[in-house]
Design a protein around this nucleic acid. Structure first.
Lengths: 145, 145
DNA sequence: ATAATTTCGGATAAATTTGTCCGAATTAAA
DNA sequence: TTTAATTCGGACAAATTTATCCGAAATTAT
């Protein structure tokens, strides 16, 4: 809906990896997909993308898997995951899909839609992977199906 | 993005029809598609859906076309157009796509996402086709590409 | 070294959304 | 009553997103 399925999986996977990393445990592709309930091969693609964008770290071979250093978690905001997968358009695009929608030439819903869109933007831009991973750690929130 | 392309076209088409209807002019499929910049045949499908849902009225034959009575415009909210095309899921669904996300078992972004989603819901639920059509009428807002 | 375990990357397939085509049905005007 | 203009509805096609498959590359342990 708001985000693509790929992006939803990407955020969930990142939070799972972060949670595991807080406990000094590696996360393998299999574990991740099993835990967040996503198709394994599709999840692999998304993780590759996140790795390329340097949002998570991967190591190959036995004992390999995915990992995020606590420092990195603190500096990574949700918006960066969205940017890596869906792009940032959602935070600037017209609610009715018009290209020429702006302050000076607003579409009919512009004034009412903008604060909503900005609210989402602000939220994603200010929320770190770390704070959400600690929510999981404290069992205040849940990822599993 | 937020809404499907079909839904964007649906809202734009409805507002165009409403605007025309305020001036006692009919809107034909051709006019609508040309004006809002949408593919003709695809737009036809969407208009059929809106007609079935009784959000707009259609008449066949020469001098036919689409129309909305001012009274109906006043009673029609944007959310009804979304409901007819995309459904209402977007206003209740988890931001991370989890089925079991709720107050008692929230996903990691639940608390932060909910107000944004509710803001969108409230906005779409309180905004009438009539008020947006009058914005077009007064040239305060624009639909054209 | 060899084998086992993992991610990487390319090709492909399935599902969904977006878009097209065309004849049928309806209606108004000539 | 014929013709033209319109929406309706079904089948189909293209594009995009979601998902699968499989061999290659890297790394660890035996």
């Amino acid at each position: 809906m708001i985000f693509s399925k790929a992006c939803e999986y990407g955020i969930r996977a990142t939070l799972y990896i972060a949670h595991q990393s807080l406990n000094r445990e590696r996360a393998t592709l299999k574990d991740i997909a099993a835990d967040i309930g996503s198709p394994v091969a599709f999840t692999a693609k998304i993780l590759q993308q996140l790795t390329k964008n340097n949002l998570i770290d991967s190591t190959k071979g036995p004992m390999g898997g995915f990992h995020i250093a606590p420092e990195k978690m603190k500096n990574t905001k949700l918006i960066q995951i969205v940017e890596a997968i869906d792009g940032l358009d959602i935070f600037t695009q017209c609610g009715l899909g018009l290209k020429e929608c702006s302050e000076t030439r607003p579409c009919p819903v512009h004034d009412k839609f903008k604060p909503v869109r900005n609210g989402l933007h602000e939220m994603m831009d200010s929320t770190s992977v770390f704070e959400l991973a600690t929510g999981l750690e404290q069992k205040l929130t849940y990822l599993k199906h």
